[in-house]
């Protein structure tokens, strides 16, 4: 039963890696184990998770969404610029920005039959400009009293737990239910595994794909809002350097980059792994430059273990 044990290993490995990493860092510095620190680390991870959660769906259908960091930056600008003018309505407005960007990527990719990395890269460019336009290329500060009125759901605490975690866990549960219980979730898996068979079974595959991209844009939008709330400002470069870690945490969590296999909780675990590695190395005092080396090794190792490379003979 070699195959079964391999599958089991693939399922649990990300979680085991996370626990081992946490123990390693904690052994080095006991303060890491403090409840306060644990909660803070988790809260810090949530924006990354939110952004990666939607991309997980796109990767599962066998595509990629490269526009998410630009989308998050743009929605942070929309929020910061319009919060003084529209109050609470700035939040749905910002989310809609994400929805439109995600939809555009999906529409262009499926209807015009353009590879998703090109379509979403193009959208990324448009969205970057949109962010600059909304913010007039500046960082826009969210006044403290407005943040107090409208954004405590993202940055306050509830029952001693930072609200970022509540938001993250809420989306984890909702998206997991979407993936596990709905026809949409099943078709996402099916399209990633064997698109032509799904198509031949009379499914409007393009619709499902566009929905996945739209969800990805939406989640990037939500991530941008939470980011702006945490930092107290919106900026057209706010989420720069988030794209690679986002994709890394999906892959480290064990979602197959080739599509068909994956889940949202894996991305959640993956995001925590990425964060613990980062923070842990800072704790231990590894130089920022050396951190990238370690990170590269972990990424490759994760893909190597989680992907059944025996079945994928050709890598492009």
């Amino acid at each position: 039963m070699k195959m079964e044990s391999r599958t089991r290993l693939q399922t649990w490995l990300p979680l085991i890696v996370l626990v081992v990493l946490v123990l390693l860092v904690g052994l080095y510095d006991r303060t890491f184990f403090s409840a306060g620190n644990m909660l803070e680390v988790t809260a810090d991870t949530m924006t990354l998770f939110l952004m990666a959660s939607g991309v997980t769906l796109v990767i599962m259908i066998g595509g990629i969404d490269l526009s998410v960091q630009a989308v998050a930056s743009m929605t942070s600008c929309i929020l910061a610029v319009y919060l003084p003018r529209f109050g609470i309505f700035a939040i749905p407005l910002a989310v809609i920005g994400g929805v439109i960007a995600g939809f555009a990527g999906g529409y262009v990719s499926t209807r015009l039959r353009i590879p998703s990395f090109i379509a979403t890269l193009a959208v990324s460019g448009v969205v970057l400009s949109a962010g600059n336009w909304f913010s007039e290329t500046k960082s826009v500060v969210i006044p403290g009293e407005l943040s107090q009125t409208y954004l405590t759901w993202a940055v306050g605490d509830f029952l001693g737990v930072p609200n970022e975690i509540w938001v993250g866990v809420a989306f984890l549960l909702v998206l997991s239910a979407v993936l596990g219980l709905t026809p949409f979730g099943r078709l996402v898996r099916g399209i990633g595994a064997q698109e032509r068979a799904v198509m031949a079974s009379g499914i409007d595959v393009d619709r499902i794909k566009i929905a996945a991209y739209t969800l990805s844009g939406t989640m990037a939008g939500v991530a941008g809002i939470v980011m702006a709330a945490r930092l107290g400002s919106g900026s057209p470069t706010l989420a720069n350097e988030f794209l690679l870690p986002a994709i890394a945490c999906i892959v480290v969590g064990g979602t197959a980059i080739t599509g068909g296999v994956g889940s949202i909780w894996r991305t959640f675990v993956g995001a925590l792994i990425v964060q613990v590695v980062r923070i842990g190395m800072t704790f231990i005092g590894v130089s920022v430059f050396a951190q990238q080396i370690v990170f590269g090794f972990i990424l490759v190792a994760a893909v190597a273990v989680t992907m059944d490379r025996a079945k994928v003979l050709v890598i492009k």
Partner: peptide, 23 residues
């Protein structure tokens, strides 16, 4: 290629063309 989604279960494949009936 076109008939079946190989990593889907027997049940998942059987209902693939009639999914709305099971929702």
């Amino acid at each position: 290629v076109e008939g079946l989604v190989a990593p889907f279960t027997v049940a998942e494949n059987m209902t693939l063309a009639a999914l709305p009936k099971f929702v």
